[in-house]
Each structure stands twice: as C-alpha cells, then as structure tokens.
Write a protein that binds this DNA or RNA. Structure first.
Lengths: 133, 133
DNA sequence: TTGTCTGCAAACGTTTTGCACGACC
DNA sequence: GGTCGTGCAAAACGTTTGCAGACAA
C-alpha cells in the first residue's frame, strides 16, 4: 500500500484511508459514500480532503473515475482494462471483463485514444433471477 | 419530424424546436447550449422546458443522454448503435462507428443488457495534425 | 524550514422541484 | 373542464475554490 505512495506522493493518513477504502470496497463508491464511511472512524475528515485525495490519485493513474451514473462520479482502482455494468434496478455496478478487437479501428481513423470506457446498462443477473420468482 | 411525434406525444413548438436543434446540430450539445441557442429565436423559452423536453424525448427513446463528460450531460439522437470519442484538447465529441463482437459475453453472464455506451477519450485527429506543425 | 496537505466555509454550475398559469383535446 | 405542458423562482445536489492553519519530509 505504502509502496504505491513511493510514486512521489506524500503519505498522509487520509490518503491511505481513501486507498484502503477503495481497495476493500470494490463497489465503485461515490466520493460522498467514501467520505461518510471514513468519517465514522475519523470524524475530523473533511469532504474536501476526500475530493483532493481522489483527484491526486487519479492524476497519478492509481484510480479512475467512472461516469456511468448520470448524476455523480464513482471511483475505482485502475486495474487492468475492464468495463462496467450498471443495474438500473438495484444500482449496483459490476465489473465486466471484455476485449473489443475492433477498437483499433478508432485509432486507425487518426485519433489518439488514451482511455476506453465501456458502460453497459440494464438489469443485472441477481435482479433477473429475483424477478423470475 | 412531426411524424416522430405521432408516437404518443403532444406537438408543441418547444419540443419541435429541441428536436430540430438536435437534428441540425450533431455536436452532442448540453442542455444549456440548446437553451441558449433556442432562446435567441424564442425569448420566452425557459430552461425548465428544455429539460422537460429532453426528459420526455429520452423516455420515448428518441434521444439519449451521453455521460462522456464528467460535469454535464450531453444529448444526441438515438441513431443506430454508435459510440463517442471525446477530445481532451478541443472538447469535441465525435461519433464512432464500432461493433464489438464480444458484447454477447456480458449477456452470457446472465445480465440483461439494454444499453451499450462506448466512450473513448484522447486527442482527436484534427488536434493531432495541428500539433505536428 | 519549506512546500504540501488538510479542513472549513462559501461559491459554483447543472439539474430538479413546486407551483401557477395557459393551451389543447 | 380536465389533463398536460410551459415558465418562473427557488431549492437541491455534487463538486470546486479560497484561504488559514497543520503536517510530512
């Protein structure tokens, strides 16, 4: 954990807490969710600091923000390329492993592609099974 | 144009104006851009009405909202499946025609996929060429 | 010590809401 | 006349900013 920090960033308890939270909660939480949950154990934590930490981590390519939800940003560790599925019923966001061999066509058009986000929306497996009952 | 309206919606000048605007401006505008531009010819137009119209059209699957920009929604006609490229330099959003044969794998996992959004970000062709000079 | 990080309060921009009025079947 | 749409103002919400004091290196 702290090893990641050796990448030029100061090690503060708040940053560590944010990273730990994202590591243990692979639920693509909002900044507010992170803030609310971390605030319990560290009441002096401020929302600004959460936003600052998320910004910094994002700028160093450690985490990424997800715009799958229309009203708020969600955050996620930047693991190997993966995509996301948003369940319109329960609101869960599920990781999707998927390779698209045609993406290079976009590059062939002359654009320099730096990020690829695949967002799927619908009803997740769990909700589908619940519905069948 | 009005033909589209026969799909259960009342025909109002405001809705027609929003649709006409989206038809003639394939730039994936924000609600505010639509409002500002339409306001010129119809000063009594209200922003609420623009939002209402966009909502209604979206609910009837005539248009779609794009969450490629982190801070605001953008709107687009719901043509045949296509994706979007956001240039980080000039801010333009470009349509990308692209089929991903592997999407069905997501469906195979038991999720009911209703929407697929492919968002690419980077530097567009135009900006790349400008840079080379 | 020095520059960076934190935390508070206030500001900001987009979108939503409540409500009265008006238009249309 | 009743439903639906418009437009105004105000509120809500997520996020950003300015700044003073605190902290890591």
């Amino acid at each position: 954990m702290e090893i990641l920090k050796q990448n030029q960033l100061k090690i503060t308890p708040q940053r560590l807490a944010v990273m730990k939270y994202l590591d243990e909660n692979r639920t693509h939480p909002t900044a507010d969710r992170i803030y609310t949950d971390l605030k319990e154990k560290n009441p002096s934590l401020s929302k600004t600091t959460v936003y600052n930490s998320l910004d910094t981590l994002q700028n160093h390519n450690i985490i990424q923000s997800i715009t799958i939800s229309p009203s708020e940003l969600r955050y996620d560790f930047k693991k190997s390329m993966h995509h996301h599925f948003l369940c319109k019923r329960c609101g869960d966001i599920i990781d999707i492993e998927l390779e698209c061999p045609n993406i290079k066509k976009t590059i062939d058009q002359g654009h320099k592609v730096e990020e690829v986000h695949g967002y799927f929306k619908g009803i997740c497996k769990k909700c589908m099974e619940k519905q069948e009952k």
